[in-house]
């Protein structure tokens, strides 16, 4: 049983790392701030959640588990809020989101 949990934990950590790295690459590759936000969203939601869940599985039934859960809930509450506030500000500040190569030429 505990071996299965360990396996699952390693799997979750692996996917978490994968998504975080892909998100970071997206952060560098994407053409404008909004599309970069989507890339950063991968890191901040799925990547973070997978890593915290992976840690939760190895923590066992201790207070560490509760604290990890609180950290997870906080990240899931605060990250989209910060992202939304940033996107809202960027819409007013930039006004012209990137809409594909052809429009960017203008």
């Amino acid at each position: 049983m505990s071996q299965a949990l360990d396996m699952l934990s390693v799997l979750l950590l692996f996917f978490g790392v994968l998504f975080i790295l892909v998100g970071s690459i997206g952060l560098l590759r994407m053409p404008d701030v909004f599309t970069r936000m989507h890339a950063a969203g991968i890191t901040d939601t799925i990547g973070a959640a997978a890593i915290i869940l992976g840690l939760m599985l190895v923590a066992g039934w201790t207070i560490v588990l509760i604290k990890l859960l609180i950290v997870l809930l906080f990240l899931m509450l605060l990250n989209p809020t910060a992202c939304h506030a940033l996107a809202r500000a960027a819409v007013h500040g930039i006004r012209s989101p990137w809409q594909g190569e052809s429009e960017q030429q203008q």
């Binding site: 509450l77 809020t81 939304h84 506030a85």
Partner: peptide
């Protein structure tokens, strides 16, 4: 910034926890 509903509601929820 209180005219941003998302920010306002989340702030109200978060402050007691902080």
């Amino acid at each position: 910034m209180k005219d941003i509903p998302v920010l306002r509601v989340v702030t109200k929820i978060t402050i007691p926890i902080i």
